[in-house]
């Protein structure tokens, strides 16, 4: 799964840029016509699932064997169950530590698929399928994608440190992406914490940060950052050993 051809890598990069734009459009949009804002928003709701499918296809046409799929299925199931157990309580997010640790061991492609399928399965099992689902899937997929590119450390302390730092950073980034998604819906377009079409990136960023603060979004993100890094500190040493063992057994020389 790690041997993506160049053309496929370019496609994945473009898909990632496109999806970041689809999250961040309120910050960027130049059109001042209310109609056009709404068109953008509505089109993106339909476009995001398609971009996810295309990205998954890119990874699936890589070298993905039954064994990686089996590990993927197990981790997705565990993640979905764990997410359901923690869902709903303020800021407690129990799905991310497994995505990050899994992606760190099995690299980016696995991380993207694990992130998006975990969210999908937990939604299907009861956390709720909604218009936000493709956006959550993409955001979690990107968290996994990036976790797969983290530098490898030989010593355990370095490993743990990089994972915790990444957990904190990605919790806030994921939170910001999802807040960006509901921002235009909940803050409208007229208040001083709402996006102002055509106002430019800097001014809108200020408005967005104000919204994050007054809507409590940052608190929520902090909760996610704390739970995720705490869970990583608690489980990563053992989990990394287990997963690396599975990775070793799964990938070996074959020669006849």
């Amino acid at each position: 799964m790690n041997r993506q051809p160049l053309i496929s890598r370019i496609s994945i990069a473009i898909a990632a840029i496109a999806s970041v734009l689809m999250f961040a459009w309120p910050l960027l949009i130049a059109a001042t016509n209310q109609n056009e804002n709404q068109i953008a928003q509505a089109v993106f709701i339909a476009l995001m699932p398609i971009i996810i499918v295309l990205t998954l296809v890119e990874f699936a046409t890589g070298d993905i064997g039954s064994r990686q799929l089996a590990i993927l299925g197990v981790m997705t199931a565990i993640n979905a169950v764990v997410r359901l157990l923690g869902a709903g309580t303020a800021g407690i997010e129990t799905a991310f530590f497994l995505i990050i640790i899994g992606a760190y061991v099995f690299r980016s492609g696995f991380g993207f698929i694990l992130g998006s399928t975990s969210i999908l399965v937990s939604a299907l099992l009861g956390a709720g399928v909604g218009p936000w689902l493709p956006f959550q899937m993409m955001a979690a997929g990107l968290v996994g994608l990036a976790a797969g590119t983290l530098p490898r450390f030989k010593n355990k302390f370095g490993e743990l440190a990089i994972l915790v730092i990444y957990a904190v950073v990605s919790s806030f980034i994921y939170g910001a992406l999802m807040t960006l998604w509901n921002w235009p819906f909940l803050a409208g377009s007229e208040s001083s914490v709402a996006y102002k079409a055509g106002a430019g990136l800097v001014s809108n960023l200020g408005r967005f940060l104000n919204y994050e603060i007054v809507s409590g979004g940052l608190l929520w993100d902090a909760g996610r950052a704390i739970t995720t890094s705490a869970l990583i500190l608690l489980t990563a040493p053992a989990l990394l050993a287990t997963l690396k063992r599975a990775a070793n057994r799964a990938g070996f020389v074959k020669q006849i």
Partner: peptide, 10 residues
């Protein structure tokens, strides 16, 4: 393949 893995997860 991915769909199978998701249904296995379910």
């Amino acid at each position: 393949e991915i769909a199978t893995s998701v249904s296995v997860a379910i």
